[in-house]
Design a protein around this nucleic acid. Sequence first.
DNA 1: CGGTAGGTTGATTGAGATCAATGGCCGTGG
DNA 2: CCACGGCCATTGATCTCAATCAACCTACCG
Lengths: 223, 223
Amino acid sequence: MNNNAPCNCSFMPFCKTKLSNNQTPDTLLATRTRHFVRNQALCVLNDKFQNIYIIKKGAVKAYQVDRNGNERIHAFYFAGETIGYRSIHAGHYISTVVALTSTVVCELSYDHLIDFLKTKPELYNYILALVSKQLGKMSFMDVASAEQRIAAMLIDLSIRAEGAIPMRELTLPMNRQDMGNYLGLTAETVSRILSRLQKNDIIEAERKFIRITNPQKLQQLAQ
Amino acid sequence: MNNNAPCNCSFMPFCKTKLSNNQTPDTLLATRTRHFVRNQALCVLNDKFQNIYIIKKGAVKAYQVDRNGNERIHAFYFAGETIGYRSIHAGHYISTVVALTSTVVCELSYDHLIDFLKTKPELYNYILALVSKQLGKMSFMDVASAEQRIAAMLIDLSIRAEGAIPMRELTLPMNRQDMGNYLGLTAETVSRILSRLQKNDIIEAERKFIRITNPQKLQQLAQ
DNA sequence: CGGTAGGTTGATTGAGATCAATGGCCGTGG
DNA sequence: CCACGGCCATTGATCTCAATCAACCTACCG
């Protein structure tokens, strides 16, 4: 991973490189590459909101802890995806985000982003659209059956997860517990459904490795 | 409702009035007041996204229709609340929004808003925070019991719904079917739980009218 | 090579869906 | 004004799916 390589993420318009005199590329908007190991926190609930993170490599989970001390995962993020929009309003991080695997991120100061935007009003609609895009991700999964939820999640992951072959193969970065937590199911139910999908020749599941052998059927189950 | 009265909604900074020569107040950003009757649509899924609506009076529901033709309500909006942020990214409305009662809205062209913002860079962070705020409303209700969901919804409505006396009394703008749809429950379950809450002296429920007789207990049930 | 976290599978239970019947409210039209 | 019809709400009986509790297996890591 080259720290100075131009992004191809959603911040590309802010990140285009130009060659300066000494032939090293500069970004328009200052960023910093950071590395996180498994279980290390990128940001912690209630810490002052300062940075937006774009995942370059790896995967993370975002969660809150309820009054009973139970973890509630509300999102997973993969390479190319952005973390922090949800915290702009509050001024502090509204969830804790930890790395599920070794993870590389691009760190970007929100204040610098705002200052930069003031010099580029033509990007204004662009950045609003980026934040708006997140709003479309609110899901209705709470009404679906366990099988529908898991089918939908596998399809989603097969598209978003790093290294995944869309609708064919993927390596889950999270365990059954975390999948269940995110979907509102228990780890046992996740395990049972994956076994059932395998019995029905829709997927092959071997711990973290998943191969989707019948994408059409899986899509159908996901509704 | 005075069309020219200054807003006290989240768009207030764009809406402050000044007296011009002839003593009629002007808004900084052009808006238009519109009236909708029950069941009339403010906007329809897939129509070109053009306007943001701020509810001045009344209540609306936002829903999508799934492949099986089932309505899926993902939000209710009340006086003071804003509709349209979710559609900025897509360029078209990503849900259909219909009035639950007679409803008055303030209509605001998104293009005009963007143009206006370009003249007011100091409001960049403000508007980003407004959209970000919506992201915080994504809920975890899918893991709660039916009783928890309904308790939480009653508390939420008692704060947000027009004419509601916070934590005391409210008149529901929607029927049991819509409540259930939103919460991922059936109308029968909603009815049963409301009856149970009444039997336990936590609320009085008479069709659309709800009086919260034991707010502490209700809060406790909602977790 | 042993310990532990993660994963699978079985038996039982329970919350909420489903199916069904009844009653009340309200708008419409005679 | 009242009668009718439709929608909405309530309540009961039954069923189903996923949670829970429990046992056991397997991969991986120090």
